[in-house]
Simulated scan of single mutants.
Amino acid sequence: MPRQINPAGSDPTAIGEVSAPPFARLPEPAPLFSRRAERWNALAAGHDLGPYLRFLAALADVQHRIQEGLAGPEMPDAAARERARSFGMPPLDRGNLAPDTAAETLDRLIVAASEIKKTVAAADALDRLKQATPAKRGDMVRNVLADAIPMEALAEHVYVAAALQVHFARLAARLDARALVPVGDGACPACGSPPTSSIIVGWQGAHGARFCACSLCGTLWNYVRIKCTLCGSTKGIGYQEIDGGPGTVKAETCDSCGCYVKILHQHKDPGLDPVADDVATLGLDILVREGGYRRGSVNPFLIGY
């Protein structure tokens, strides 16, 4: 991997092709995780992180499989959703989730994840999660939703985060995308979570538009190009990539807040996944951080790196 970064003063992709993109696109839980599993498996071939990417592929397949027969998640009532909309708040309140509402999803994931190939450390972490009391598991759920995962228990929390992604994707899928409103820079309009990355799409009617990808529920929301997805600044925005790469994954850096979020050019490579390719381009994170920028996005599968 070349140890250089190629800076760019502006995003070179044409933006004149955009025609009335939708504000939000809700996740489709059924294919979401199976496609991500396929992407991770494809990325693993010949990759320095190959074993880890294959583990994540197996975990994403678990996320897909545990949905069959899973009871429908309990939605906030219509009045609560309308109240949230009127105050510019997300209809799914990640800060107010009762941990037991996701207990069945977590239980299923723990059982299914027991069958996949994993390292000794990952197996030990799963055993600790199995043995945890309901109260302890509830604490882990709250840690993930508060983005406050303790360093000494990162591995256990990866499984909890995977279960919560399934739970919130299924919740978000039941919303009305037309009823979602902006709730602030760097916040998903469905659940309020930060983005994992942003993508430039090639969809018909929205070609060249940029969407942020929620790190929790998987909702995509339209966001202006050449603007920091975290602080909203349009000044000091730059794009960095590893020299000699395909130019499909870059780090959008912001001098105003000192952070960066990756931007994936999915219109050039439709196979790019906002979560999977974020993990697979860890080398870009390392180089950009060496330049003094902080990672501003959240990916539960990169915590600790």
Rank of each mutant, 00 (worst) to 15 (best):
A121Y: 07
Y52F: 14
K117G: 04
A80P: 00
H157P: 00
T248P: 07
L302Y: 10
V279D: 14
V160Q: 01
K235R: 13
A112E: 15
T101Y: 01
V275K: 04
F168S: 03
P194Q: 12
L264Q: 14
A98M: 04
A132R: 09
A146H: 09
D185W: 15
P150K: 14
I199T: 11
R137P: 01
I286M: 12
R178T: 14
R128W: 03
G271R: 13
R295F: 05
A78H: 05
R35A: 12
L180Q: 06
P76C: 09
G184P: 04
C188A: 10
L264Y: 00
P27I: 07
E156K: 02
A206W: 09
T105L: 02
A276H: 12
A146S: 08
G232L: 13
L106S: 03
V144T: 03
E82K: 11
L59V: 09
G296K: 09
C217T: 06
R178F: 03
R174T: 05
I242T: 10
G245Q: 11
R294F: 00
K117N: 09
G283D: 12
R289Y: 02
W221M: 12
L284T: 13
L70W: 05
F33C: 00
P300E: 01
V160W: 02
N299H: 14
G72T: 10
L59Q: 08
S86V: 11
A155M: 13
T253G: 04
Y223C: 04
T101S: 15
S198P: 02
A169P: 03
G296P: 15
A172G: 06
L126V: 06
V261S: 15
V201T: 14
G138P: 02
G138Y: 01
V111D: 09
G88Q: 10
I263K: 05
A251S: 12
H64I: 08
D147E: 14
A60I: 00
A206Q: 15
P21R: 11
P182M: 11
D127A: 15
I200E: 07
E104L: 09
L164E: 01
L32D: 07
V111L: 11
H157E: 00
A14I: 12
V224N: 05
P31Y: 01
L154S: 05
N222Y: 06
A161K: 06
G236T: 11
R137N: 01
L302D: 07
K262F: 13
